[in-house]
């Protein structure tokens, strides 16, 4: 029992949900950020309106705001790639990156005059920006939601998930195959509890722990498969002795941890996939944007 408890203690502690006290400041912080984004966006629209009212072409103002923002975002990317930021700075700058991204949505909407483009080059620019923005927003949302729910902490490195998954499988196998020494000492016929647990292992758990499972359920954040599996474990727990019950409890915690790893793997894969869109399209967008600026000034009417 104590071994089981010692073996599983680390897992239990990691899977514990964050306390409510910690969530409230986080929500407050996010609300504040959202308010700041909305306020700054409104201010940007007001500034552009004021600029246009002063007989200037507002497309130049919001265009340069957009271009300036994109240059800053690109600078962040270069800094990250070149390793010029410390991990702490990187985290801080990532927040700025996300916040600035939201503001650039307002600048882009203003630059497009809230309308769809009408020419091929503009469509390319528009599509590029929308892809970059959507991938960025979705990635940020995924990171935010996972973090808020406390399902995956930052220490769950994507590269270490397979290793952790294999470790859990080994622990499960050890747990299932270990016989109860107390029962053997009694000299009585051995109850079939271990056989039942072994059966559970062979029919359900072994395959579950063999690799990534329930991808689609994790994409939609469904916990159905997990509940189904833990339900099987709890059903069996009603018919076993206390020792076996402890074993099943430990198995259940391993199952939950395995499911958490699967979920983290899916989410992080998704995030990385979005980055695979976000970054390359950003490169293409930069090329198009430079062309756009050159053309805009080549055909400028000389007024501004």
């Amino acid at each position: 029992m104590s071994d089981v408890g010692a073996a599983m203690g680390k897992v239990v502690a990691r899977s514990a949900a964050p306390p409510m006290r910690a969530r409230r400041p986080m929500l407050g912080r996010y609300t504040g950020q959202a308010f700041a984004i909305v306020t700054l966006s409104a201010g940007l629209f007001g500034l552009v309106w004021l600029y246009g009212s002063a007989l200037r072409d507002p497309r130049y103002l919001d265009g340069w705001i957009l271009a300036g923002g994109m240059i800053l975002q690109l600078g962040f990317h270069i800094a990250v790639k070149s390793g010029g930021l410390s991990p702490k700075s990187a985290v801080r700058w990532r927040k700025v990156h996300v916040l600035l991204g939201y503001l650039l949505i307002a600048a882009f909407a203003s630059h497009c005059d809230l309308s769809l483009p009408e020419t091929a080059l503009e469509w390319m620019l528009w599509t590029g920006f929308v892809l970059v923005t959507l991938s960025g927003v979705l990635g940020a949302y995924l990171a935010w939601s996972v973090k808020v729910r406390g399902i995956v902490d930052e220490r769950t490195a994507f590269e270490r998930i397979p290793e952790q998954r294999a470790e859990l499988a080994r622990k499960l196998q050890t747990l299932v195959t270990r016989a109860d020494p107390a029962s053997a000492a009694l000299g009585l016929p051995v109850p079939p509890h271990d056989a039942w647990i072994m059966d559970l292992y062979t029919t359900h758990l072994r395959d579950f722990f063999a690799g990534q499972r329930n991808v689609s359920a994790h994409l939609v954040r469904s916990q159905g498969p997990l509940k189904q599996l833990t339900g099987e474990i709890e059903d069996l727990a009603r018919y076993v002795d206390p020792q076996s019950k402890d074993k099943l409890t430990a198995i259940r915690e391993l199952v939950v941890e395995k499911d958490r790893l699967d979920f983290a793997c899916v989410q992080q894969s998704l995030t990385r996939g979005l980055f695979f869109v976000h970054v390359p399209v950003t490169y293409a967008l930069i090329v198009l944007s430079i062309l756009h600026v050159v053309v805009a000034y080549a055909y400028a009417s000389g007024v501004w």
Partner: peptide, 27 residues
């Protein structure tokens, strides 16, 4: 690669298009 493809794509589109209306920002 995508940046390069974009650049080449724009250049080709510009090369094969008639005139410079391709650059026109809108009707």
């Amino acid at each position: 690669l995508l940046a390069l493809v974009t650049l080449l794509g724009v250049a080709m589109a510009f090369y094969f298009s008639a005139g410079t209306r391709f650059l026109m920002p809108g009707p």
